[in-house]
């Protein structure tokens, strides 16, 4: 930036206070051009400052949001610890169950952080929760249209799938060498006329199954969490072939091929 005559202040006030200096048309043109350039520079500075302030504000909001989520998640972990502890038969049992659930949450979170839009493809959610228990895909299938689960539902559904997977490993189809799990999903119209996302979990080839004598925390979580958080349902049928579970959640929590349903 030039100083002296071209200083923005003298540039602005100069012409009126010193008329003799600005009668030369060429000089006037140069002064005018300088003024225009300075104004442009000022505008740029102003825009930069505004951008900076906006991004600082955005960062402040992001930090607040992150704080909120971390604290919330810690409360969920505390709840999970209490509930798991209450049903644990031994310290070792607690360790296994608790760590399993924490890692299931971590896997679901990882998927969420990988996806820019925070939504998770159904096939990936299934692969991360069931895969580790089913020989990384050799003992399960997942079939359905390309459906993306909204971030607000992904943790809930992820934890439910984990409970089903670990249950299958302990008592169901994945507790034997031949058993397998076939999962399919689709969109359907529910009894009340509203669209819903249906997921069918079917185990086969495992030992004979029967309803548990006492309702474990895993079963309780499967049956209640989706209902509580997503207004969904879960029904468990102990069929001769193996356990068959139907999960239903409102279609508002899923997106099909880039369009949101309702």
């Amino acid at each position: 930036m030039n100083h002296g005559d071209n200083d923005p202040h003298t540039g602005l006030h100069g012409p009126s206070s010193e008329p003799s200096a600005t009668h030369d048309p060429e000089e006037m043109l140069t002064a005018d051009q300088d003024l225009a350039a300075q104004l442009e520079a000022l505008r740029r500075d102003d825009a930069e400052l505004r951008n900076l302030m906006a991004s600082e504000e955005q960062q402040r909001l992001l930090v607040a949001e992150l704080n909120h989520r971390v604290r919330n998640m810690l409360q969920v972990v505390i709840g999970l610890a209490h509930q798991t502890l209450r049903r644990a038969q031994s310290l070792q049992d607690f360790e296994q169950s608790f760590m399993g659930r924490i890692l299931a949450l971590a896997r679901a979170y990882e998927l969420l952080s990988n996806e820019r839009c925070n939504n998770v493809p159904m096939s990936q959610l299934l692969a991360t929760q069931l895969g580790p228990f089913a020989n990384e895909g050799r003992r399960y299938t997942g079939n359905g249209e390309h459906v993306v689960i909204a971030s607000s539902a992904a943790l809930s559904l992820g934890l439910v799938l984990y409970e089903l997977a670990t249950n299958a490993t302990k008592y169901g189809a994945l507790s034997t060498a031949e058993g397998r799990v076939d999962v399919s999903w689709r969109l359907a119209t529910g009894e009340d006329g509203r669209d819903e996302f249906l997921l069918l979990w079917r185990e086969s080839g495992g030992p004979p199954v029967h309803p548990p004598d006492r309702c474990g925390f895993g079963t309780e979580l499967v049956q209640r969490q989706l209902h509580y958080e997503l207004n969904g349902t879960a029904s468990m049928d102990f069929e001769p072939d193996g356990l068959c579970v139907t999960l239903a959640i409102p279609a508002q929590y899923v997106v099909v091929e880039g369009r949101s349903l309702k």
């Binding site: 969920v76 709840g79 209640r224 509580y228 958080e229």
Partner: peptide
């Protein structure tokens, strides 16, 4: 709005002698 938190809270309150009317 979170099931695990709500349920934990209910248990804690009920054990301490309070009644939980609903969620």
């Amino acid at each position: 709005d979170q099931y695990l938190v709500a349920q934990d809270c209910e248990r804690c309150l009920e054990q301490a002698g309070f009644a939980c009317t609903g969620f």
